[in-house]
Simulated assay, not measured.
Amino acid sequence: MILQGTGILTSFIHIISESLLAPVVIILVIFLVYAILSLGGFLNEWFTKKPLKSDALESLLQDVSKSTNPDELKEVIDSSALYKEQKDVLVKITNNYNLGPDARKAFASKLIEEEESNLLKLTSKTDILVRLGPIFGLLGTLIPLGPGLSALGTGDITTLAQSLTIAFDTTVTGLTIGAIGYVISKYRKQWYESDLTTTETVAEAILEKLNGF
C-alpha cells in the first residue's frame, strides 16, 4: 500500500517535472533577449559615458564657492559636465535656498536617496539575470535527463540524443545569461557609485554656500 502511494506521488512529480520544461525554455528565451538588449544599452553607455574627472570636479567646486547668489549657482550647475540626473538633483537643492539649513540638508539627502534608488533599480534587473539565468539553465538541464535516461534503458538512442541536446543547450544559455548580467551589473554599480559620490560632494558644497547667503 505504501509502495503504491509512493509510486503515485513519484508519477505525479514526474508529470510536473516534464510539464515544466516548456515554461523553463520560454523563460530562458525571454531572459536571453533581455540580456542581449541590456548588453546593447550597456555598450552604448560604455562608449558615451564620460564621468567627471577629479580636476573637473575641483574646478566645479571652486565655481560653486565663488557664486554670489542662487541664480549664479544654477548657472554653474547647468554649464557643468555633470549628467542630467545629477544636475536635476542639484538644481532642486538650489531652488529651495529659502528653507532652513536643517530642512535643506534633509531635503538634499532625500533627493540623493531617491536617485540612488533609481540607479539600484537599473542594476537590480541584471542582478536577477545573474541569479535566475543559471538556475533556469540548470532546470533545463535536469528536466530532460529523466526521459533521456528512460530512453537509454529501452535502447531509444534518438530520444536520448534529443534530451541531451536540450540539456546542453539550456545549460549554455543559462550560463551565458548569467555572465552577461554579471558583467553589466559589476560595471554599472561602479559607475553609479562614482556618480553618487560626485553628486553628494557637489551637494555638500552647494549646501555650505547656501548657508552663507
Rank of each mutant, 00 (worst) to 15 (best):
G41V: 10
V64I: 12
F42S: 00
L138C: 08
Y182T: 06
M1H: 12
G41I: 01
D169N: 13
E208S: 09
Y187W: 07
G174E: 00
A151M: 06
E45M: 11
T154R: 11
T159Y: 04
W191D: 05
I36K: 03
I26S: 03
K189L: 01
K209C: 05
L60V: 02
S59T: 12
A179D: 08
E58C: 04
D127F: 06
P51S: 05
L138K: 00
E208I: 14
V25R: 07
S185H: 03
E115L: 13
S150Y: 05
K209L: 11
V91A: 10
E116S: 15
V64E: 06
I15A: 10
L82H: 03
A22S: 12
L60G: 00
V24C: 12
L60N: 00
E204I: 06
L207F: 10
L9R: 09
L90F: 05
A81P: 07
I157Y: 12
T48I: 05
N44T: 13
T6A: 13
E114I: 08
L90E: 08
L57A: 10
I27Q: 00
L164H: 04
N96I: 03
L73I: 11
G153N: 04
G40T: 11
E113L: 11
D63V: 05
F107Q: 13
L9I: 11
L152S: 11
